[in-house]
């Protein structure tokens, strides 16, 4: 469960309002897609949810706990994957996963089973012992995702997770996320790929210039925008400069 209430964030002493009075809730069991043009405030919102940025005002709760007053409790149930896989290049893939397992307190037995599963699915088993420095962009993305999946948290927050993934890995990820939400977990993810949002998300929000301009299921958005429009058309119409 993720709840944002009247969240605001600005840069340059208020000159640039990145997120403007954002209120939304993502209940357990829901795949929530977060769309918006470049610079709309998606990444800023995501960074505030996971505690990388602090909102100027408003509140964010994860599983009912405020992420500023109880940050560790919130972080313990959240896994985050950023849009750029900037991770420790000089560690091997296995060392990185072990580090994540250590800091999230994943028991060693579970770690081996989960890591083995995801390394296999993402076809990283052969390179897991190599330094991350030697990985391609897509492989780095997959090792960060493996780290997040290793934790098996209640809440996944993924910033454009499909960028750089090959189709097979993207399929495995989507399958895993569907299963996670079917088991009562929560997924909040941003994407630029309209087809993915259309087919994959239970609900979609569109943010533009920091403000939430639409939120609901695909059918609800269609009803708001006019009959039988594609998500791409709805998006283009709503975010027209």
């Amino acid at each position: 469960m993720i709840e944002l209430r009247n969240v605001c964030k600005s840069y340059n002493k208020g000159l640039l309002r990145a997120v403007d009075d954002l209120t939304l809730a993502v209940p357990p069991g829901e795949i929530f897609g977060f769309l918006g043009p470049n610079g709309a405030g998606k990444t800023t919102t995501i960074k505030m949810i996971v505690g990388i940025l602090a909102p100027d005002s408003g509140s964010i709760a994860i599983e009912g706990r405020d992420n500023r007053s109880e940050p560790l409790a919130c972080k313990a149930v959240t896994a985050f994957v950023p849009d750029e896989p900037e991770i420790y290049e000089r560690l091997t893939g296995l060392e990185y996963l072990n580090f994540i397992g250590d800091v999230y307190g994943v028991p060693a037995g579970l770690r081996a089973e989960r890591a083995g599963r995801w390394l296999d699915k993402f076809e990283l088993s052969a390179v897991a012992g190599d330094p991350i420095q030697t990985y391609s962009h897509g492989m780095r993305q997959k090792i960060v995702l493996s780290g997040a999946l290793l934790v098996e948290p209640k809440v996944f927050v993924l910033d454009e997770p499909l960028t750089g993934l090959d189709p097979r890995s993207a399929h495995h990820l989507k399958e895993a996320m569907r299963g996670h939400c079917d088991r009562g977990g929560t997924l909040f993810f941003s994407t630029h790929v309209m087809e993915v949002a259309e087919k994959f998300c239970d609900r979609i929000a569109i943010i533009h210039k920091g403000r939430l301009i639409a939120c609901g299921s695909l059918d609800e958005l269609r009803r708001q925008a006019g009959e039988s429009q594609s998500l791409e058309n709805i998006f283009l119409e709503l975010t027209e400069p």
Binding site: L94, N98, G101, R111, A112, A115, L119, S125, A126, D130
Partner: peptide, 18 residues
Amino acid sequence: VRRKKLSAAALASSFASG
């Protein structure tokens, strides 16, 4: 780089201790 698939046993031993 090694580029050699890790066996289940090797993987388990890599994660032997928290």
